[in-house]
């Protein structure tokens, strides 16, 4: 089975985010960059699938030079090959990213593509299904369980209020949701080996895909209003505190 995994490098979720002087991007100094947490699950799922049915796992990331780090992490976890698509400083919106990635995926015959259901930086929830659409393959989002047999993939995905089990024919794309697996840590030998594996770097201008001019452009960014320290409710007993709280919620906040 030929499996492709899509990886994005993002700020760690602990990061304190501040807005840069240009007003439309974030300050990057002091930020630690890591693999998008949902993409770690994507790598894990790909490795488990390969180890079960055989085949090869190729990881893709579209990003600047520093994105090599997440590709190396995936190689250290056990991926077989890595491709970095260099955007050459071009600004790309979600659709453009999807077009470029889909263009590269189409150059090989992948049976299964795995992405995260969202990247925790732009929170777009877009690239997975958009790539599937451009590749003209089915997709199943937010998968928490999957089974592959006889050229078909059966997945359980989360929806509001429950789960739903779906089946489709391969090739297909799935996106990951928490609960699918526990991503492994790279072993020391894995890390050593990964250092020596080549990374196939492709320049955007040489991919043959025209990403088009951006249709979605950030024109302003601001920090949402922050809650100041709350009012502590004192009292002699739990019952006393509870009574005061409920009074405050009723009379001041007027919400109950």
């Amino acid at each position: 089975m030929e499996i492709a995994v899509l990886l994005k490098q993002v700020p760690t979720t602990e990061s304190l985010i501040d807005i840069a002087d240009d007003g439309v991007s974030i300050k990057t100094d002091g930020i630690n960059w890591v693999m998008n947490p949902y993409d770690e699950m994507a790598v894990e799922e790909a490795l488990q699938t390969r180890d079960e049915v055989g085949g090869k796992v190729t990881v893709f990331s579209l990003g600047p030079e520093k994105a090599v780090a997440v590709l190396r992490t995936a190689l250290a976890m056990g991926a077989d090959a890595a491709v970095r698509i260099d955007p050459e400083d071009k600004i790309l919106d979600g659709i453009a990213v999807a077009k470029v990635i889909a263009g590269e995926l189409k150059k090989d015959a992948f049976d299964l593509v795995i992405a995260g259901h969202r990247a925790v930086d732009d929170d777009n929830f877009q690239i997975g299904p958009a790539v599937a659409e451009i590749m003209n393959i089915p997709h199943i989002s937010m998968v928490i369980e999957k089974n592959i047999a006889d050229g078909k993939i059966k997945c359980t995905r989360t929806i509001e209020g429950g789960t739903i089990e779906l089946e489709t024919a391969l090739p297909a794309l799935i996106t990951t949701q928490r609960g699918l697996n526990e991503p492994r840590y790279a072993s020391l030998t894995g890390i050593m080996k990964a250092k020596k594996k080549p990374i196939d770097t492709r320049l955007l201008s040489e991919t043959g895909t025209d990403p088009g001019t951006p249709m979605v452009e950030t024109i302003a960014m601001r920090l949402p209003p922050q809650r100041q320290g709350g009012r502590m409710i004192d009292g002699d007993s739990a019952a006393d505190k509870a009574a005061q709280l409920v009074k405050a919620l009723r009379e001041e906040a007027k919400i109950i």
């Binding site: 809650r227 100041q228 320290g229 709350g230 502590m232 409710i233 019952a239 505190k241 906040a253």
Partner: peptide
């Protein structure tokens, strides 16, 4: 969490939460 809330109660939740429920 107390610096990011509107109202805070310092106490054991197993005592405070049932008391709040009783008040409601």
């Amino acid at each position: 969490i107390f610096s990011k809330c509107d109202f805070g109660i310092a106490g054991d939740l197993f005592e405070v939460v049932p008391a709040v429920t009783a008040e409601i």
